[in-house]
């Protein structure tokens, strides 16, 4: 429940805006959505402005997507809220993610 996934086509690639919670119950929805989108996406931007929190189930999808997009046009995250940033810090994800706030 309670993850909203919004897709906005951009000049280069696609922007995916997430709102709500990215956890065990919602991560499969995002994974399925990305499986449809990524083959056609040159580059990917995640807009996390309205993401309340992320658990390791969500990190798994972010990591998988990062691995896939790094072989293409890349992946960046924008508008990362404080609580989500805390999780990226704790897990060392900050070291390999491209975060532009």
């Amino acid at each position: 429940m309670s993850l909203k996934i919004e897709k906005v086509p951009a000049d280069t690639g696609i922007t995916v805006a997430l709102a709500g919670r990215l956890d065990t119950s919602t991560a499969p929805e995002l994974e399925a959505e990305l499986e449809k989108l990524l083959p056609a996406a040159a580059a990917l931007t995640f807009d996390l402005a309205n993401l309340e929190y992320i658990s390791s189930a969500g990190l798994r999808v972010i990591l998988k997507t990062q691995k896939e997009m790094s072989r293409k046009g890349g992946m960046r995250l924008i508008h990362v809220p404080e609580t989500v940033m805390e999780v990226f810090d704790i897990t060392g994800f900050v070291d390999f993610l491209t975060i532009e706030n």
Binding site: S55, Q66, V87, I90, G92, D95
Partner: peptide
């Protein structure tokens, strides 16, 4: 190991690591 690069990473153990830190 939270110092590995994206390609070397797996997600195992990260959840409990987060719980410990929080």
């Amino acid at each position: 190991d939270t110092t590995l690069s994206a390609d070397e990473r797996s997600i195992g153990g990260l959840g409990l690591h987060m719980v410990r830190k929080m």
